[in-house]
């Protein structure tokens, strides 16, 4: 427990000194704020682009607040996950690759504490970044588009947050499994993408898949409820996160250093 605190403090310090605590939340905030702004000014943008034939009036219905917020989540699913994977990919592999791990693991340290601290800091970074971005998106949506049901917005955010935690867990697992940063990013991103694509194509069979979470989150916003698979997807995701964690502990212990 004492070692967990030590490791966690070190991770926080590193994330601060490498400016990750600054740029990841800011990029998320940017992503969140963009969607409502772009939606609000879409008619003007189209007009300025001048591709419309003269005389054609732009008939565009302004979407509802809930719709814009759901679109924002769509943004996070593409670029948000990419940013997360890129900022987390070397968390375990980097220390093994550089060689610091040799000095760390020759001390009487617990591998569980080590991995748990990585996990906890991953969760912290994701929660803060997504929280900030989502809050920004929400505020801008209410200001520029229209009101959103508070309970639905919070519930949707929590489902989506779980999806991001899942993606982060996946990245850390691959970071414990392999060394090349590009490989980790590719595989983690690919797996997350595949899961959410698979749900899009086979919603019936993948109803409990973690890949259903983004859709569930959107449904909560638009329809007020996530549908029948919600509970299953929730439990399966948490179960997988636990499995990933155990796997990462095991792999970190097995591949203590690079030889």
């Amino acid at each position: 427990m004492k070692q967990f605190g030590l490791f966690f403090r070190k991770e926080m310090l590193e994330m601060g000194r490498s400016y990750r605590w600054l740029w990841v939340p800011l990029v998320f905030l940017m992503l969140g704020v963009m969607q409502p702004i772009v939606t609000r000014f879409m008619p003007e943008i189209l007009k300025a682009a001048g591709n419309m034939p003269k005389g054609m009036t732009i008939m565009m219905e302004m979407p509802s607040g809930a719709e814009v917020l759901a679109q924002t989540l769509g943004q996070y699913n593409a670029i948000g996950i990419l940013i997360l994977v890129l900022s987390l990919m070397t968390m375990i592999s980097g220390e093994r690759q550089s060689g610091v791990s040799q000095m760390i693991f020759s001390k009487p340290v617990s591998f569980v504490s080590y991995a748990a601290a990585k996990w906890m800091s991953m969760i912290s970074l994701i929660t803060a970044s997504f929280g900030l971005g989502y809050a920004g998106a929400w505020y801008y949506t209410v200001q520029m588009i229209g009101p959103v049901d508070t309970a639905a917005a919070v519930k949707a955010a929590l489902f989506y947050l779980l999806w991001m935690w899942f993606a982060g867990s996946l990245t850390l697992l691959f970071s414990s499994l392999m060394n090349p940063a590009a490989g980790i990013a590719f595989v983690s991103l690919g797996a997350a993408l595949l899961l959410s694509l698979a749900y899009g194509m086979l919603p019936r069979y993948m109803a409990w898949s973690p890949g259903a979470l983004p859709q569930i989150s959107a449904k909560v916003l638009l329809q007020g409820s996530g549908g029948t698979g919600t509970m299953g997807a929730l439990l399966i995701t948490i179960l997988f996160m636990i499995i990933f964690f155990v796997g990462a502990v095991y792999m970190t212990q097995r591949k203590r250093a690079r030889f």
């Binding site: 030590l6 590193e14 060689g99 040799q102 000095m103 760390i104 001390k107 009487p108």
Partner: peptide, 23 residues
């Protein structure tokens, strides 16, 4: 180790204290 590698973003004092506490 043969070529000791540290966290380049830590100061010498910080690393040494970290190592002491880990031990």
């Amino acid at each position: 180790p043969q070529m000791p590698v540290f966290y380049p973003w830590m100061t010498g004092r910080e690393f040494l204290r970290y190592a002491a506490e880990l031990a």
